[in-house]
Design a protein around this nucleic acid. Sequence first.
DNA 1: TTGATTGCAAAGCATTTGCATGCTA
DNA 2: TAGCATGCAAATGCTTTGCAATCAA
Lengths: 176, 176
Amino acid sequence: MDRKKEEFTKEREIFLEHIQNSGLRRTAQRDLIMEIFLRTEDHLTSEDLYWLVQKEDPSIGHTTVYRTLKLLTDAGLAREVRFGDNKTYYEHHYNHQHHDHMICTECGRVIEFFSEAIEQMQDKMADKLGFRPTHHSLRIWGICDVCQKTEPMLVTAPSGAQPKVRMRSVAGSQGN
Amino acid sequence: MDRKKEEFTKEREIFLEHIQNSGLRRTAQRDLIMEIFLRTEDHLTSEDLYWLVQKEDPSIGHTTVYRTLKLLTDAGLAREVRFGDNKTYYEHHYNHQHHDHMICTECGRVIEFFSEAIEQMQDKMADKLGFRPTHHSLRIWGICDVCQKTEPMLVTAPSGAQPKVRMRSVAGSQGN
DNA sequence: TTGATTGCAAAGCATTTGCATGCTA
DNA sequence: TAGCATGCAAATGCTTTGCAATCAA
């Protein structure tokens, strides 16, 4: 199930390069945090990553995880994402083509998708308004296929799984 | 320049109705906050609105503005929007058709736009993945037409206007 | 040796909550 | 009069910063 250690060779290289080019220093903490980030294919918060790191080195603090996540972002290995619950999630960025997200408000599942057609329409739209786009974010909230099947039961049997993404206000919120 | 007082009749009605239907109470504070919100055609934070309210009634506190903004959202008159700077902005919702945003990272300008084609592609995409969408958010960051003209000067003459939207981390951030 | 890095604690923000007081219905 | 609303202060949750001690280059 776990990926082979030899993977992520390029990613490590990029991280080191970025560190050197910026006059920064390689440390055991940064190495470990990067390793754990790389082998975790998921959207995680600094907090999430902190606990994973804790299991392997309890001496590492919150702060260092925050700072390293920022470093990884600067290096182009990570990307910040927000799903509307005012938390910052991180996902792999290097070698991961751009994509957007559908977020299930029932179970918190995040589905990545990409549509060339939508991208093109966006550029066209921006062009029409004289806007020079640098990046964008498209998020679609709703009910995923799995939850659509189980949903009718929720009336009598509330789901045990708590959604990863908890919307702050339910009614009328677009979380935009 | 200012709108006539007779405007927003329907909005006031909706607000009152919502208050009554929910067993809540009409108060002078709520009235004033609603009035100021309605007459301000802009994306504003609770903080922004608080200061506008302050000018007309310094006795009104932050908390009440927060709570009333949430009320207005529940009533369907306001809509929450986030532009990636971890603040919650509010915009008019009633009688305002759905739209998306382009956000200038130079001056903070927010441009509203709508594309039927993009909406349709999104639905098609969701359908393909068995996802039942309830709402979505598309934001495009970049440089607006005005800033594109002035930008070359920024190298020697830093702009005096501070952007309304300040991105937390500049490099690599997608603020997604 | 020098200056970047770490981890703790404390500070920052935006937002929410507890509670005594005030005020609608 | 009952109990929702208000505003203050304090609490919260996430994130950042100050700083003395530590460690990589």
